[in-house]
């Protein structure tokens, strides 16, 4: 199918700013779904609140645009009650790891099969440029006018520690890699986390004087390397891309099926 067959044209034009990275993620996601040959009626996209969350309206899947931070909690109810559905949960950095941080680590701990995509633009865009838990020390935001003194989470480290069984990272510059990693994350039988560095030229770019969208994409090109690259040894500040964790552990819905069998035997 063509990519346009996966979108709701009625909903366009989208509301993202010119130069925003989120459209690239939408594009890569639809290509991944197409490559996998998934049936649209078997996909549920659940999102929270923020710029990133609007992605669920644009796709022609079952879609749920919920409340701030709780997308994974709604998604858990959807997946548990109908495990045959593919559940994709795109979230912003604040959505996933500030207000939604608790749900994030608990969904990872349960290893429930769903695909969490952290669309990390390091800022609260929709409310106009406040710092997020992924902005990083020293960054500027409307609520950090003298420079941010909050340290950031590392999404990969956090996800691994919380028990996610598939953890990967890439950027909106590396579009083929992005699409490929989304595919891998969807196929993975367990909780998968994909962090995507996504540029916000309007708020992060402007306030931190890192240039326009193209400049920001160039940074992703220059300042990221594949996992295991030798460059990282000489330049430790480089950000690694690729699959950090991929392991086969019992998935929550399948565990619950076993529990049902046990409960029925004990009756």
């Amino acid at each position: 199918m063509a990519v346009k067959d996966y979108i709701r044209q009625r909903f366009f034009p989208h509301m993202w700013c010119a130069g925003c990275g989120h459209g690239i993620i939408l594009n890569a996601l639809l290509r991944a779904v197409d490559n996998l040959g998934l049936n649209k009626k078997n996909i549920v996209m659940v999102s929270g609140i923020g710029c990133s969350a609007r992605i669920s309206g644009y796709v022609d899947f079952h879609s749920m645009h919920t409340i701030h931070g709780r997308a994974l909690a709604y998604a858990t109810g959807v997946k548990m009650s109908k495990p045959e559905l593919n559940v994709i949960v795109p979230m912003g950095d604040g959505d996933a790891l500030a207000i939604g941080g608790n749900h994030f680590i608990h969904a990872a701990r349960r290893n429930i099969e769903m695909t969490a995509i952290v669309m990390n633009n390091r800022i609260y865009g929709m409310t106009g440029g406040q710092f997020s838990p992924l902005s990083g020390y020293g960054s500027m935001g409307t609520t950090a006018p003298y420079g941010n003194i909050d340290h950031n989470f590392d999404v990969v480290d956090l996800s691994v520690a919380a028990g996610a069984t598939f953890v990967a990272r890439t950027t909106t510059y590396h579009v083929h890699e992005l699409s490929d990693l989304i595919e891998q994350a969807i196929v993975h039988k367990g909780f998968s986390v994909l962090e995507v560095l996504s540029q916000c030229p309007t708020h992060f770019g402007r306030r931190n004087k890192v240039g326009d969208a193209v400049d920001m994409l160039k940074v992703y090109k220059k300042r990221t390397v594949r996992i295991g690259s030798e460059k990282k040894q000489t330049d430790p500040d480089l950000i690694e891309r690729g699959v950090f964790v991929k392991k086969d552990l019992p998935e929550y819905c399948r565990e619950y099926d076993q529990l049902i069998l046990k409960a029925r035997q004990n009756r």
Binding site: K41, N42, F61, S63, M64, H65, T66, I67, K82, L85
Partner: peptide, 12 residues
């Protein structure tokens, strides 16, 4: 139902 033929958007 989610999972049936009709795909629609749910929002607050």
């Amino acid at each position: 139902d989610f999972g049936d033929e009709h795909r629609y958007n749910v929002t607050g």
